[in-house]
């Protein structure tokens, strides 16, 4: 039984070594990947449509200003909010 264990260990060690060296030799002799000789194709720049105009300031009172806030709805709701009751 003891001899069987020793033989099994030797066999595993030798087969691992052979497998490792064989793989190394195979990769070392495989063809290298082709190096790019030209830069990647340039992405075409797209002309974006112009932004919509600011909301018209239709108040008679010119001291008040429109506040072009982009709606932000993806943040978590804080516990301190104001919205009337």
């Amino acid at each position: 039984m003891n001899n069987f264990k020793i033989g099994l260990r030797v066999w595993i060690a030798i087969s691992s070594m052979v497998g490792f060296l064989g793989g190394w030799a195979l990769l070392a002799h495989s063809p290298k990947p082709a190096q790019p000789t030209q830069p990647a194709a340039v992405v075409q720049q797209v002309d974006l449509p112009p932004l919509p105009p600011m909301p018209s300031f239709n108040m008679q009172n010119t001291n008040f200003q429109p506040l072009p806030v982009v709606p932000q709805t993806n943040f978590s709701l804080p516990r301190l909010r104001t919205g009337g009751s």
Partner: peptide
């Protein structure tokens, strides 16, 4: 302090933070 400004048209959402 960070205060959420509730959207009066949809109270489940905030319009922005103040």
């Amino acid at each position: 302090w960070e205060i959420g400004l509730e959207d009066p048209r949809n109270p489940e959402k905030n319009l922005t933070l103040l």
